[in-house]
Amino acid sequence: MKKVIVLMIVIFLLSGCSSGSSYKGVVNVLNWTSYIPDNVIKDFEDEYNIKVNYGTYSSNEELLAKISSSKEGTYDVIFPSDYMVELLISKGLLQKIDKNKLSNSVNVDRTFLNQTYDMSNDYSLPFLSTIVVMAVNRNHLKDNISSYNDLLNEKYKNNIVLIDDQRIIIGMALLAKGYDMNDTNIYHLDEAKEWLLDLKDNVKAYDSDSPKTFFITEEADIGIMWHAEAEIAKEENPNIEIIYPSEGHAISTDNYTIVKGAKNINNAYLFINYLMRKEVALKITEEYPYISPLKITQKSKVSVDHVFSKGFYVKNIGLDIKNYDKLWADIK
């Protein structure tokens, strides 16, 4: 027992040394899993001598839960998607962004600004965007697929992988049925539920973190996934074709925001401004092919026009979320 206590004290001392002496500040960041390459973070730490405490989440709701259940000042920079930005503003959990402190914000393409979720970008600036697409392994499937309704074909039994996101998947069913992606009419939702139950036998898995793995291991031949994931899968498996569904698609834009009561505001601005450098954005999109809102040569092959012409943002629907939640439990 004595040895254990001594060991513990040693560990405490070591941890004190390593975090105390080498950095002059910290920034507490909460971001999506696999979004910024490790070396980008490390370069920032080396350049500014600021330690990045990096936490991750895999859904906007998880982010909200973490933000609202933790003490003020726990986090500095977070990357909520569009509808979550609106929600966080309405709950008073974000603080206004001073664009004068972000010299690199001139790099942002105006098409991405002034979106419905934060009309004049008082609280947020776009970080990365992506859209929902269909991916098909042409090695195994030659069929003509262009609409969500094509997925209902009995041939595809146990062969489809879907993003594990209730708003996106229910939204897809609503689009397939010809309704608005954010429809809250209960009869329309019932139709969406029927549609998803018809699809159920074809679904191999729901996976939000890495649907691409299913393609790389040829576990499934059709996927509804984020465009960036589909492009990564295509790099590994060139037989994959990316299809833009005829009914339209969900857009998702993740944004830089600063949490209210953040303790390290200056470091937060330094971190955001750093990520807004063109060369840093290139490094990030090189590894994760999302669409960058910066005026750079995109690695992603989807055109910015297409993103917005047929795209819809997920919107806040208030208490109707309970109907969505129940529908989700019904189809699982």
């Binding site: 507490n28 899993t33 990096y54 936490g55 895999s58 973190d209 890495s210 793995t213």
Partner: peptide, 19 residues
């Protein structure tokens, strides 16, 4: 868990699906 307190099991859980 909170920020900066990732444990090994949590870290593994977050990367397990990516492989």
């Amino acid at each position: 868990a909170g920020p900066g307190s990732n444990t090994l099991p949590l870290k593994i859980y977050s990367i397990i699906k990516t492989g």
